[in-house]
């Protein structure tokens, strides 16, 4: 028996003097599984600054599958037409609903120019849906080789596939025992 359950935490809404912040900036996160893979959009998160965005991204998007590198930038920067002279990382979403995929780098003076260069260098006359660009300087990257993202200890319990395997075994066992029960019931009926 759980004598003192902690499932009902004492919420203390009225005690805080600080106003709740509902408008942290939104950050976009790209992850790379293998060195030869392109960085692919994993999702977004809210964080007050780049430091916390990187901390959250590592746990939020780096632990559901092997992850060797991570790029994090402000959503506004990815979508901005403005910008400065820099090397831009460019990402193409080929179809609506697809994830943005890193296609390469271009040198440009603004987001708008980077997008035009991306179309010229990487898209050509192919169909695409949207393009995101970001000045390399504006992006945070985590290199998992030097700064671990995906852990080295057994992490199988985090993965859905490990879970489903165990659950399937349990269901198989339940079904097997039910078959035996049904068989015995029928068997008893026949006997008596």
């Amino acid at each position: 028996m759980i004598t003192n359950p902690r499932i009902k935490p004492p919420f203390k809404d009225d005690e805080l003097e600080t106003q709740e912040v509902n408008a942290f900036p939104v950050w976009e996160v790209f992850t790379q599984k293998k060195e030869t893979d392109a960085h692919t959009h994993a999702g977004s998160l809210s964080a007050p600054n780049a430091l916390m965005a990187a901390n959250f991204a590592r746990e939020h998007y780096g632990q559901d599958q092997v992850c060797r590198s991570m790029w994090i930038g402000l959503r506004d920067d990815f979508k901005s037409k403005d910008g400065c002279e820099d090397t831009y990382e460019v990402f193409v979403q080929w179809n609506a609903g697809d994830r943005h995929v890193h296609v390469g780098q271009v040198g440009a003076a603004s987001g708008e120019e980077a997008e035009a260069m991306c179309k010229k260098d990487f898209v050509g006359d192919k169909e695409f849906y949207t393009i995101w660009t970001i000045p390399h300087q504006a992006m945070n990257s985590i290199d998992g080789e030097e700064d671990m993202i995906w852990r080295s200890t057994d992490q199988s319990y985090r993965l859905a596939k490990g879970y489903s395997k165990i659950v399937r075994q349990k269901w198989d066992a339940i079904r097997a025992s039910k078959d035996v029960d049904d068989y015995q019931k029928e068997d008893l009926k026949d006997t008596f």
Partner: peptide, 12 residues
């Protein structure tokens, strides 16, 4: 975000 991250670190 803190919820997910703290839970992930707890798993660690």
């Amino acid at each position: 975000e803190a919820d997910i991250a703290f839970s992930s670190l707890a798993q660690d």
